[in-house]
Design a protein around this nucleic acid. Structure first.
Length: 255
DNA sequence: ATGGCCTGCAACGCAGGA
């Protein structure tokens, strides 16, 4: 089984890239973030014509998540239960016996922003819910844009990013809290080349200079981690014309 | 050099991203 996550920064703009990527890589499930589309404007016909189903939770202008899958997505869950949030950032469903949870973690803007407090509270609620989900679903994958670079090796210039949003210690602690709940960072299950990132700023020729951060992740329950045979970032779409600023992250799970 | 770019909205520059 191949599962993947991709922050597309507007599905409207990126639909051609998504369709091309589906055709090339044929994932069993692809989690999307920042669709920036109301549900009524979701391009379901195009997705279905590509051989995929879709469930989605969107809003105008901001946020928005979706799960594309070849087989049906069962028992969909929208948002974190008991956590009131206008922002469409969470979508979960069971695909081929795997509980797939697609998340778009708040950015936080800066550590002295109100949005940073919202981010930390959001992560706390996510972690509490995740523990319950793990108890219900031993085969669980948490995929998405976490907006956290877990370690200095996930940052092109750790010194300049030290203490900044996406890299601050409370955020990294929240990330470790998810691991402590029983999840593994699929990317770090394997030897990886240095300087692998999943996001590069649109400015400063950041992609060409590989000035990036690894903030998009696939976390796996123990059962799935044991069956995981590979995890990588696909930089390909980031080099296309009019790209998303994020690249897809892909994991292979054995039977 | 502390900004540069991209998206959506509905502007006639803004908010937000990261």
């Amino acid at each position: 089984m191949k599962i993947a996550t991709w922050n597309v920064n507007s599905l409207n703009v990126r639909l051609p890239h998504v369709l091309a990527w589906l055709a090339e890589h044929q994932p069993d499930a692809l989690c999307l973030q920042e669709t920036k589309l109301e549900d009524g404007k979701f391009p379901l016909a195009d997705i279905e014509a590509a051989g995929y189903r879709a469930i989605f939770s969107g809003q105008k202008t901001y946020n928005g998540v979706a799960i594309l899958s070849r087989d049906s997505a069962e028992a969909p869950q929208f948002g974190i239960p008991g956590f009131a949030d206008e922002q469409k950032r969470v979508l979960a469903a069971t695909v081929d016996g795997v509980r797939v949870i697609c998340i778009y973690v708040p950015n936080g803007q800066s550590v002295d922003s109100d949005k940073y407090g919202y981010k930390l509270g959001w992560l706390e609620a996510l972690t509490a819910w995740l523990k319950e989900e793990l108890a219900r679903h031993p085969r669980l994958a948490l995929l998405g844009d976490f907006n956290i670079a877990p370690d200095d090796r996930d940052v092109h210039d750790p010194k300049s990013w030290e203490g900044q949003v996406l890299c601050s210690e409370p955020e990294r602690q929240a990330f470790r809290g998810l691991l402590d709940a029983g999840l593994k960072d699929a990317f770090r299950l394997f030897d990886q080349p240095e300087k692998i990132y999943s996001w590069w700023d649109y400015r400063m020729n950041a992609f060409r200079r590989n000035m990036g951060l690894r903030i998009d992740h696939i976390l796996l329950s123990q059962a799935l981690a044991e069956a995981c045979s590979a995890c990588r970032v696909d930089k390909g779409p980031r080099a296309l014309e009019r790209p998303s600023d994020h690249a897809p992250v892909v994991a292979e799970i054995g039977d």
